[in-house]
Measured scan of single mutants.
Amino acid sequence: QVATSTVRILGMTCQSCVKSIEDRISNLKGIISMKVSLEQGSATVKYVPSVVCLQQVCHQIGDMGFEASIAE
């Protein structure tokens, strides 16, 4: 089973930030795809909930120095 959710990301300033986040999160087990939008300050994450949760994704992004939260 696959889920798609949006994560809000604060602190991104350039495409390099976007690429860094996409590269790191895409390597997590259970992540199918991730598309980060600098303009919208968010990311669309396609993932397998039984393998990885959005809290883990937000935590990983937080470790990179950005502020991440699950969009309502």
Rank of each mutant, 00 (worst) to 15 (best):
F66C: 03
C17H: 15
D23R: 13
T13C: 05
I25V: 07
V18W: 05
S5D: 09
S33I: 05
C53F: 07
Q1M: 06
S5Y: 06
L28F: 06
M12V: 03
H59L: 15
S16Q: 11
E72N: 10
G41R: 14
K29M: 11
S37V: 06
Q60I: 15
K29N: 14
S20I: 10
I25S: 01
R24F: 06
S69E: 09
T4A: 04
E67Q: 12
I61M: 04
Q1K: 13
L28I: 14
L54W: 05
P49W: 07
H59W: 14
T6N: 09
A43C: 04
L54K: 02
C53E: 11
E39K: 08
A3I: 12
E39N: 09
C58N: 11
V45L: 12
S50Q: 07
R24T: 09
T4D: 04
G11D: 02
V36M: 03
S26I: 10
C58G: 08
C58Y: 09
I31H: 03
Q60P: 02
T6W: 12
M64H: 01
I9D: 03
S69D: 06
Q40L: 14
R24N: 09
E67M: 12
Q60F: 15
E39P: 08
I32E: 02
D23Y: 09
F66E: 02
C17L: 05
T6E: 11
K19G: 05
M12K: 03
C58Q: 10
S42I: 13
K46A: 09
I61D: 03
S50E: 11
T44D: 06
V51N: 02
I61K: 04
V7E: 02
E22H: 08
C58M: 13
Q40T: 13
V57I: 15
V57L: 06
I70Y: 12
V52P: 00
E39V: 10
T6Y: 15
A43E: 04
S16C: 05
T13Q: 07
G41W: 07
G11M: 05
M12G: 00
Q60M: 15
M64K: 03
R8E: 09
D63H: 13
S50I: 05
L10F: 15
C14L: 03
V51R: 06
T44L: 13
I25E: 00
S20Y: 06
L10Y: 13
D23N: 13
S33Y: 09
V2H: 08
G65L: 04
H59Q: 15
I61P: 01
G62K: 15
H59P: 02
V18C: 03
V7Q: 00
M34H: 01
G65N: 03
S20M: 15
S33V: 04
H59G: 13
Y47A: 00
H59M: 15
V57A: 02
V52Q: 04
C17Q: 15
I32G: 00
A68I: 06
Q15K: 11
L54D: 01
M12Q: 02
Q56Y: 15
A71C: 11
F66V: 02
G41S: 13
E72R: 06
Q55Y: 11
K29T: 10
H59K: 15
M12T: 01
M12W: 04
V52H: 02
Y47Q: 01
L28D: 00
I9A: 00
C53Q: 10
V7K: 00
S26R: 10
C14G: 05
G62S: 15
T44W: 13
I21G: 02
T13A: 05
T13G: 03
Q56S: 09
I31Y: 02
K19M: 09
T4C: 15
V18Q: 05
Q15D: 12
I32P: 00
M34W: 05
T13E: 08
V36L: 04
I9K: 00
E39H: 12
V7S: 00
E22F: 08
G62W: 15
E39R: 09
G65Q: 03
E67P: 10
V7I: 14
V51T: 05
F66R: 03
I61E: 02
G11H: 04
L10A: 10
Q15N: 10
S16D: 14
T44K: 11
C14M: 04
T44S: 08
I32M: 07
M64G: 00
E39S: 10
V7R: 00
Q15A: 11
V48Q: 13
H59I: 15
L38R: 05
C53L: 10
I21L: 05
G11Q: 04
I31W: 03
L54Y: 03
C17T: 04
M12I: 05
Y47T: 00
L10P: 04
P49M: 06
D63E: 15
I70D: 05
D63V: 14
V18K: 08
G30F: 06
T13P: 00
S69A: 08
S5E: 09
I32A: 00
I9E: 02
I21S: 01
Q15I: 09
E22G: 03
C14E: 02
S50Y: 09
I21N: 01
S37C: 09
K29P: 13
Q15F: 10
S69I: 11
V57P: 01
L10V: 13
V48C: 08
S16Y: 06
E39C: 07
I9V: 06
G62P: 02
V48D: 15
S69P: 02
A3H: 12
N27K: 13
L10G: 10
T13F: 15
S50L: 08
G11A: 03
L38K: 01
M64V: 04
S26N: 12
S26A: 08
G30W: 06
K46P: 04
Q1E: 15
I25Q: 00
E39Y: 08
S50A: 11
S42R: 11
A68C: 15
C58F: 13
Q56L: 09
Q40H: 15
K19Y: 08
Q40M: 13
I70K: 03
L28A: 03
Q60W: 12
M34P: 00
N27G: 14
V48R: 14
T13R: 14
D23G: 10
I21W: 04
Y47S: 00
Q1H: 12
C58A: 13
R8G: 08
I25A: 01
S16T: 13
I21Y: 03
Q55F: 08
G41V: 04
S16E: 14
V52W: 03
T4H: 07
G62Y: 12
L54H: 02
E39T: 11
S37E: 06
E22P: 02
A43N: 03
M64S: 01
T6D: 06
S37I: 06
L38P: 01
S5T: 07
L38S: 01
A43Q: 01
G41D: 06
Q60H: 09
V36A: 05
D63L: 15
G65W: 04
E22S: 05
E22C: 05
S33W: 09
K46W: 09
V2E: 08
T44M: 11
S26F: 05
I21D: 02
K35Y: 07
G30D: 01
S69T: 14
V45Q: 02
G41F: 07
A43L: 06
H59E: 15
S69M: 12
S5G: 15
S69G: 06
E72H: 14
H59R: 15
C14H: 04
Y47H: 02
S37L: 06
I21R: 02
S33G: 06
R24Q: 12
V18A: 15
I61H: 04
D63T: 14
L10S: 09
A43I: 06
A71I: 15
Q40R: 15
E39D: 11
M34K: 00
S5R: 12
S26Q: 09
G65V: 04
I9Y: 02
Q60Y: 14
G41M: 10
I21K: 02
A3L: 11
L10I: 13
V45I: 11
T6P: 04
H59C: 06
H59S: 15
A43V: 05
A68W: 08
D63S: 14
F66W: 05
